[in-house]
Simulated scan of single mutants.
Amino acid sequence: MCFIALFTHLLRTGTCETVYWQTLTCPYKDTHESLQRVWCRQTSPECCTGITFSHTDRSVDGGKLKVTQGSDSFTVVAVEPGYGAGLYWCGMLSRNNTIIRLAEGYFHSCK
């Protein structure tokens, strides 16, 4: 089961006064625990563009993403999505380099 939460914090930052701390929780099977994590923006129904990271990483994409590792899931908190607004996936990179999509959610951009 996954959930998407949207938290709003008011900040004064010139052109953008609201920052959305957007969260996506990504549950996985025990057999996938050691696989690389994936965070990407959907580019078509079957594809996405993004990054991979390790289960030990806590900050990703130059600090734009914070990752918390649980026993059977990881949670990504995005202060600002690195690829702009859109539908984002979290997942695992399988041994044959295909993405195992765990969850998805629409992330807003302040830009």
Rank of each mutant, 00 (worst) to 15 (best):
M1P: 13
C2Y: 09
C2T: 05
F3R: 07
F3S: 15
F3A: 14
L6G: 06
L6I: 12
L6T: 08
T8P: 03
T8V: 13
T8H: 12
L10F: 12
L10D: 15
L10G: 10
L11E: 14
R12H: 09
R12S: 05
T13N: 13
T15S: 14
T15L: 11
C16W: 09
T18E: 13
V19E: 13
Q22D: 06
Q22W: 04
T23H: 08
T23Q: 14
T23R: 08
L24M: 15
T25S: 14
T25A: 14
P27R: 06
P27K: 05
P27M: 05
K29T: 06
K29S: 07
T31R: 09
E33S: 12
E33G: 02
S34E: 12
S34K: 10
L35Y: 14
L35S: 07
Q36A: 15
R37I: 00
R37F: 11
R37E: 15
V38W: 02
V38P: 03
V38S: 01
V38M: 02
W39V: 12
W39N: 02
W39L: 15
C40D: 04
R41S: 03
T43N: 03
T43H: 00
T43W: 01
S44H: 00
C48D: 01
C48G: 12
G50Y: 04
I51A: 10
I51S: 11
F53C: 04
H55I: 07
H55K: 14
T56L: 10
T56H: 09
T56N: 08
D57W: 03
D57I: 02
R58F: 03
V60E: 14
D61N: 15
D61F: 07
G63T: 00
G63C: 02
G63I: 00
K64W: 06
L65F: 12
L65D: 13
K66H: 13
V67K: 00
V67Y: 05
T68Q: 12
Q69K: 11
D72W: 07
D72Q: 11
D72A: 11
F74E: 04
A78Q: 07
A78P: 08
A78W: 05
V79L: 10
E80P: 02
G84K: 09
G84A: 07
G84P: 00
A85E: 11
G86F: 02
W89H: 09
W89L: 12
M92V: 03
L93R: 07
L93A: 04
L93W: 08
R95P: 04
R95H: 08
N96F: 09
N96P: 00
T98H: 08
T98M: 10
T98N: 06
I99Y: 00
I99D: 00
I100Q: 15
R101G: 01
L102F: 03
A103C: 13
E104P: 01
Y106G: 10
H108S: 11
S109R: 14
C110M: 11
C110I: 13
